[in-house]
Amino acid sequence: MINVLLFAQLREDVGKERISIQAEKIRVKELKQKILSSYGINTEDSIMIAINEEYVPENAYAHAGDTVAFIPPVSGG
Rank of each mutant, 00 (worst) to 15 (best):
P57R: 09
V28E: 00
N59C: 08
M48N: 11
I26N: 10
H63Q: 11
A23Q: 10
K32D: 10
F70E: 07
I71M: 08
V28K: 02
I51G: 03
L36W: 04
I51V: 13
K25S: 13
E58R: 01
G76F: 08
Y61K: 11
I19Y: 06
G65Q: 03
A62I: 07
Q9M: 10
G77N: 06
E54N: 10
T67F: 06
P57E: 11
Y39R: 00
E17C: 03
G76I: 07
N52T: 04
H63C: 03
A23H: 05
P57C: 05
N52W: 05
I49K: 00
L6Y: 04
P73E: 02
G77A: 13
M1N: 12
V28S: 01
L5Y: 01
P72F: 02
T43Y: 14
V74F: 12
D13G: 02
M48V: 15
G15P: 10
I26T: 13
I41F: 10
G76L: 06
M48A: 14
R27P: 03
I49D: 10
D45P: 01
F7Q: 01
R11V: 06
I71G: 00
V56N: 02
Q33H: 12
L36S: 12
K25A: 13
V4F: 07
G77K: 04
D66I: 02
Q22D: 15
I21C: 07
P57D: 14
Q22V: 14
L5V: 03
M48C: 08
A50H: 07
L31R: 04
Q9E: 11
A62E: 01
E54D: 05
K29Y: 10
E24F: 01
S20I: 11
S37T: 15
A8G: 01
L36T: 04
D45V: 09
R11H: 10
V14L: 02
Y61S: 06
D45W: 02
S37N: 14
N42H: 11
G40D: 12
T43I: 10
K25Y: 01
Y55Q: 13
